[in-house]
Design a protein around this nucleic acid. Structure first.
Length: 1039
RNA sequence: GCCAGAGUGGCGGAACUGGCAGACGCACGGGUUUCAAAAACCCGCGGGCCGCAAGGCCCAUGGGGGUUCAAGUCCCCCCUCUGGCACCA
């Protein structure tokens, strides 16, 4: 035989790439109503880093999407497959990701719909910002100032109060404030959980999301609280899952920074609490500890006065900063009570518990039991008691059922994050003022357009300087960056709105009444909003030039000038100054040494100055700007002294768990805590922590402020949503998906999107590692393979033996284009599909690519051979063919492309079988095979198609349908079991009646022999399947 | 610690609602071809036992119990690993 012909992929690909009809991408049709677009496949946006990557995870998603889309294409549909590149994600910058993505798509012959969407394009993030504003106006997004501890040496950040010195470099820890924007989703939790059931979520994803949301059902109990010698009462709401234990509550713990502390703290205890806080911060206090506040609460059940203490134990979820302590039934509280000599009162009795001679509990009882010491509820079982207690307290008006969610907020923007700027302005007079819609986008300054820069937005003075859209006074732009998820979370809508790049009514920047004074004029990119290639004028503001503190900061343990974060403000706008009368942090210089991190800790986003005092301060205040650095007209004022200390002194104490300050309070941070009322999402946040029981009003009011624009209202949006198949990245955490689902709900509620659930089906595609498996895991092989093959494994031959150590040099340096160049695009596609089940991570390497290439060669040969000789089609061939159709179709739709490929391979194997004549495959069979092949290996398929002389368009050739009759042939083999063991088989008509199957089975020689003289006790016949014979147990002679 | 998921040949992995375990691929062994090698092609390939052979039997889906005519699949206990949560989103 001649040397076996091989598939000349290079030549074929070149030919088809050159062909004008081969342009792989397409646009949404102009007229939606005529279009056959019915199917929407959405590969999750991803960062697309530039340069050699050892990771083809995105390509895997794209190929999977493309393969599924091609299948639909054969079903007379033009599926929509947008490609979105998330440039803001923390990927190494240094190029135009969108361009590289385009190249890659072309290489792999992936069809996309429309242009590659880049989240970093101002035309895109204009709407990210717009959505952000909608969230803000609806009262869901609010700004919070948060304390963090940061290492003064390496900049690493830690939770406030958690450490005494840097875990990584032992450097000194100092407090710093950071601003963050959070979205309150507590009102959406219930629906987010419920609607999981309806969707086609893989079990794992569903559980993950539920887990992240962390729904806890319980009750809220309000306690009257007061200072020691005062009669004035305030209210404290405590969440608990065990109301029935209310009679056992002997004290109350609150977070050391809980706002209620302010209300109840007795002057006599002020020092104690302050010291306690400080000791906690330094790690000098154990977790199980507490300090008295001198405040008391009234137990509504038995009207006893119980002390209020501050303790970190109060912040353990699901509690949100206050717990009613029942020490008798909680180990930690038990220990605390013992230490502080607080009373312990048994309320759940069980004889199994340990009691001392006076029948007092000897250790906390955690199990079940009946209520005791509980007034009229005594001796009720816990379950019953709970309902009764709720009933009682409810009548007293101090208890209601409540649901909490562990994740009730989403981080939407933060200081130092590289992302679209938060489109608001901070004005001394008006507070937080949204940038008007028509001024969107608020573009990134040029030095930040291409990638993150140390110090972030706040470092750009020109950016920060602005004027208040409301009053026209000088103001400062918010310097926080919006997190990547918010951009990608609406990208599936963007892809259906091709016009969104251009002018959109209501959004064009240069509207008549535009108020944008000096701040704008210097900003080059401002003028050209649209698709914007922000001509980056080579970093006009090198980071070094700004902020002298940065230079002095790195290792100085000396507190630098307090709060350098104000250096970004123009000197004449002293917006966030704190009353200079404030006790200037006198007490505590250490707290003030906020400073920038010179080097970024690897895992934290770039972090900058900026961030201001909470609460737009009273206008009369002025903190001196010492004007350290007079670059241009902008002189950074000196920071307002005593940010934190002053705040504390004024009593503006962080309401959230220990470490955050709300600027516009999120509901659950109001002193009362949050009643996360089920049905009503989107309570107004405005007005600080005022109780929003009149939700309707709040909502209406908010609605008034929402945008009247409907930019997302193209014809394709209702036609194609929800997305039919979303292909998520393996790296997506459940919380990320949750965020997208939340946003979808929000957009639906506000009338911007027709669907609340964005995805009909969700597939996850795991990571792809390029190259050979990481290393030889040494512990693995020695035990078993010691003698045989392990010894013989030849390490030398071209990366073969998987455990054989490093593959031959020269083989391995790889990239997508190199692989595609050596083995062809189809082979790479197959690698990505065949590598394993989508959710799992796979590897792609030269060896695997070659295997796929070999498979393509085998196809090539068979098809050439049969094109010459094929004449007829046998029944055997038909059955094989239809089984292949059935398997490929079903497996591909099921999201298991690797088994679909296996079905193709199986068929090819059948063709190669000796028993299969070269003549046995007619033209139709070949057509069918090629069509089935084409979603997986489009180049080869197209070449074969042309070689067959077919002239119709392969891409839209109708997908074959498997005939049931042939998939399940009329004659089949029935296994026969005797006593549960496979003993014989017989060929019989598939639909033979059970009775006949039974009798024919019993008549078989082999079965008669096995049965012998024993009695047939039972025969189980499964029609279409098998016969199972049960014999009576042997007569008991050898028993 | 809490919650969830997964453990199948030497490897990646198949197996629809309980119904012939190991599809497909790799690796490995033998053979054909070749001066030789690569490539290609053919045969074999979970383990053990009986048999010259055809063939047959037994054991095998982390371990141990159970339900069933029948268990990788369902139930209980245990072991191991992974993921999520708990200190961050």
């Amino acid at each position: 035989m001649d040397p076996q012909p091989t598939y000349p992929f290079a030549e074929v690909e070149a030919r088809w790439r050159r062909s004008p009809s081969a342009r792989p991408d397409r646009d949404l049709p102009a007229d939606a109503s005529k279009a056959a677009v019915k199917h929407y496949i959405y590969p999750w946006p991803a960062p697309f880093s530039v340069g050699g990557r050892a990771d083809l995870s995105i390509e895997r998603r794209w190929v999977l999407a493309d393969t599924l889309a091609r299948l639909q294409g054969h079903r007379a549909q033009a599926p929509v497959v947008p490609i979105v590149v998330d440039g803001f994600a923390p990927a190494p910058p240094g190029g135009r990701p969108a361009d590289r993505a385009r190249e890659c798509l072309e290489t792999l012959e992936i069809r996309r719909t429309g242009e590659v969407v880049d989240t970093t394009a101002p035309a895109f993030y204009r709407f990210t910002q717009w959505i952000f504003l909608e969230l803000h106006l609806k009262g869901l997004a609010a700004r919070i100032l948060k304390r963090v501890d940061a290492c003064t040496r390496c900049g690493r950040k830690y939770r406030f109060g958690s450490l005494a010195s840097c875990r990584a470099c032992q450097g000194e820890i100092s407090e710093r404030r950071e601003s963050e924007w959070w979205i309150d989703i507590s009102g959406y939790g219930e629906r987010l959980v419920q609607d999981l059931e309806g969707g086609q979520w893989p079990r794992e994803e569903m559980l993950g999301q539920k887990d992240v949301l962390g729904r806890v059902r319980g009750s809220e109990v309000s306690f009257q609280v007061s200072r020691l010698f005062e009669d004035e009462y305030a209210e404290l709401v405590v969440f608990t899952t065990h109301v029935e234990r209310i009679f056992g509550v002997t004290f109350i713990l609150v977070d050391p920074y809980h706002p209620i502390v302010e209300a109840v703290l007795d002057p006599a205890y002020e020092d104690d609490v302050a010291r306690y806080r400080e000791r906690l911060r330094k790690g000098a206090e154990p977790r199980i500890s507490a300090a008295r506040t001198g405040g008391f609460a009234l137990n509504p059940a038995n009207l006893r006065r119980i002390p209020i203490l501050v303790s970190p134990l109060a912040s353990v979820p699901p509690s949100d900063g206050a717990v009613m302590a029942v020490p008798a039934h909680d180990p930690e509280l038990w220990e605390l009570a013992k230490r502080l000599k607080l009373p312990i009162r048994e309320v759940i009795h069980n004889d199994k518990a340990k009691f001392d001679s006076q029948s007092r509990l000897e250790e906390p009882w955690l199990g079940d039991g009946v209520l005791t010491n509980s007034g009229s509820f005594t001796s009720l079982p816990v379950r019953v008691g709970r309902d009764r207690v709720i009933g009682l307290l409810n009548r007293k008006g101090c208890c209601q059922r409540a649901t909490r969610f562990r994740r009730s907020r989403l981080l939407a923007a933060a200081q130092g994050v590289w992302g679209p700027p938060v489109p608001v302005v901070h004005c001394k007079r008006c507070g937080i003022v949204p940038v008007p819609e028509h001024e969107l986008p608020v573009e990134l300054p040029p030095e930040l357009a291409a990638g993150p820069v140390e110090g972030g937005l706040a470092a750009s003075k020109r950016f920060v300087r602005a004027s208040c859209p409301a009053c026209g006074e000088a103001a400062a732009r918010d310097a926080d960056g919006i997190l990547p998820w918010l951009g990608t979370a609406w990208a599936y809508l963007r892809a259906l709105l091709p016009g969104l790049d251009g002018p959109v009514e209501g959004f064009q920047g240069q509207a008549p009444g535009e108020v944008r004074p000096e701040a704008t004029s210097s900003d080059a990119t401002r003028e050209a909003p649209a698709p914007a290639t922000p001509a980056v004028p080579a970093r006009e503001a090198p980071p070094e030039e700004r902020a002298p503190e940065a230079a002095q900061a790195p290792d100085s343990s000396v507190p630098s000038s307090p709060a350098p974060h104000l250096d970004v403000l123009p000197e004449d706008i002293d917006i966030f100054a704190v009353p200079s009368a404030a006790p200037a942090a006198a007490g505590d210089p250490a707290q003030e040494s906020a400073q920038e991190s010179a080097e970024e800790p690897a895992e934290e986003p770039a972090e900058g100055p900026g961030g201001e005092e909470e609460r737009p301060a009273e206008p009369d205040a002025a903190a001196g700007g010492s004007g350290e650095e007079g670059e241009g007209p902008v002189a950074p004022p000196e920071a307002a002294p005593g940010g934190e200390a002053a705040a504390v002194a004024r009593g503006a104490i962080e309401p959230d768990l220990a470490s955050t300050t709300v600027e516009e309070a999120l509901p659950q941070q109001s002193p009362r805590g949050t009643p996360a009322k089920e049905p009503g999402p989107a309570k107004g946040l405005e007005g600080g922590g005022e109780e929003a029981d009149d939700e309707d009003d709040g909502e209406e009011e908010a609605a008034d402020r929402l945008s009247s624009l409907r930019p997302f209202s193209g014809p394709f949006v209702p036609a194609l949503l929800p997305v039919d198949t979303a292909i998520g990245a393996g790296s997506l955490r459940p919380g990320d998906i949750l965020a997208v689902r939340f946003l979808a709900r929000f957009l639906q509620e506000t009338g911007h999107s027709p669907v609340a659930e964005p995805f009909r089906r969700y597939l996850r595609a795991g990571a792809v590692q390029v190259g050979p498996p990481p290393a030889v895991p040494p512990p693995k092989s020695p035990a078993k393979g010691a003698a045989g093959p392990a010894e013989k494994a030849r390490p030398g031959d071209g990366g073969r033996g998987p455990p054989g150590g490093a593959p031959a040099a020269g083989e391995e340096p790889r990239s997508l284009s190199e692989l595609a160049g050596r083995f062809g695009a189809d082979a790479v596609r197959l690698c990505l599909l065949f590598g394993g089940p989508p959710p799992r991570p796979i590897a792609v390497d030269v060896h695997r690519a070659r295997c796929m290439q070999r498979f393509l060669d085998r196809i090539w040969r068979q098809m050439l051979l049969r094109r010459e000789r094929g004449r007829y089609v046998s029944r055997r061939m038909l059955v094989e063919k239809h089984q292949m159709i059935h398997r490929v179709t079903e497996r591909l739709q099921a999201g298991k492309p690797h088994t679909a490929v296996a079905a193709l391979m199986r068929f090819v194997r059948f063709l190669e079988d000796r028993e299969t004549a070269p003549e046995d495959m007619d033209r139709f069979a070949m057509r069918t095979f090629i069509i089935l092949l084409s979603p997986f290996a489009p180049f080869l398929a197209r070449e074969l198609w042309a070689a067959m002389g077919e002239t119709d368009d392969l891409a839209t050739a109708p997908w074959p349908v498997a005939s049931d009759e042939l998939v399940h042939p009329p004659e089949r083999e029935f296994p026969i079991f005797v006593d549960g063991r496979l003993r014989d088989r017989m060929q019989q008509p598939a639909s033979l009646e059970p009775e006949k199957l039974e009798s024919r089975a019993l008549q078989r020689d082999r079965i008669r022999e096995l049965v012998g003289s024993r009695r047939v006790e039972r025969v189980v016949v499964v029609p279409q399947r098998l016969v199972s014979i049960v014999l009576a147990t042997e007569p008991p002679r050898q028993g």
